[in-house]
């Protein structure tokens, strides 16, 4: 589902974010990506999302090579991926419902069908009663769960999460991880970037470790 082959990313000024990274994630797998901050975790996720392009090497998502994709293909590539951000990136100028419905509106779902799916997603993260609230008034943990609902509402093939538990206490972190596991169980490929080693150990999943831009461990 996700295949990196000798991928390097060099930013302007010569800074090498990742070097010669190769790994492959099968469909339906759940994998952690770990390493210190600055090790290149976010860069890997950005490359998968096509927010950035690799300087060398090749990346294939769902069997499709990313290199030849032009700006017209990028939206359709991104629609098969759901992303959870560390700072959740919710829009505070609209309600919880309108935040979650955004990916469905972008993909072109019918309004009635979209509303049904939004409620299903909210139900899954246990926040069905928060639909009409502004996300600003919710707690950090609830905001993160809204972010997750938004990432999975259009049932993406791949779920990416960048430090999803960064701002959460251990109990909330565990809840979030359980959610990811549930999505994984119904077939979604999940890749979580995190530096919370204790949590990762408890999850007992395959873990890729990055160190100064190089993949040093894959267990």
């Amino acid at each position: 589902m996700i295949a990196f082959e000798q991928v390097s990313k060099e930013y302007q000024g010569g800074y090498k974010a990742i070097q010669d990274v190769s790994f492959s994630i099968s469909p339906g797998e759940m994998v952690f990506l770990t390493g210190h901050s600055g090790a290149g975790k976010s860069t890997v996720l950005k490359l998968i999302m096509l927010m950035e392009r690799a300087s060398s090497g090749s990346i294939a998502i769902g069997g499709k090579n990313l290199a030849p994709m032009g700006s017209g293909d990028i939206p359709f590539h991104r629609r098969q991926i759901g992303v959870v951000f560390q700072n959740h990136q919710l829009l505070f100028d609209r309600s919880v419902f309108d935040n979650i419905v955004l990916p469905l509106r972008i993909c072109g779902y019918d309004a009635v069908d979209a509303a049904r799916r939004v409620r299903a997603a909210l139900d899954k993260v246990g926040l069905l009663d928060r639909e009409k609230l502004n996300p600003r008034v919710l707690s950090t943990g609830e905001q993160q769960r809204i972010g997750i609902a938004r990432a999975i509402v259009h049932k993406p093939k791949i779920l990416l999460a960048d430090e999803p538990t960064g701002n959460l206490d251990p109990q909330l972190s565990a809840e979030v991880m359980t959610l990811f596991q549930q999505f994984n169980r119904i077939g979604t490929t999940v890749l979580v970037a995190s530096h919370d080693l204790n949590l990762i150990r408890r999850m007992n999943c395959r873990t890729l470790t990055l160190q100064q831009g190089r993949l040093v461990d894959d267990v």
Partner: peptide
Amino acid sequence: DFRASSAHPKRGAEQHVLTKQDQRRH
């Protein structure tokens, strides 16, 4: 711009597939 992914994934969550008519209406 409302081309939805046309093929059902073999594994993974079930994705909604939009028909041409859906797209036009949307």
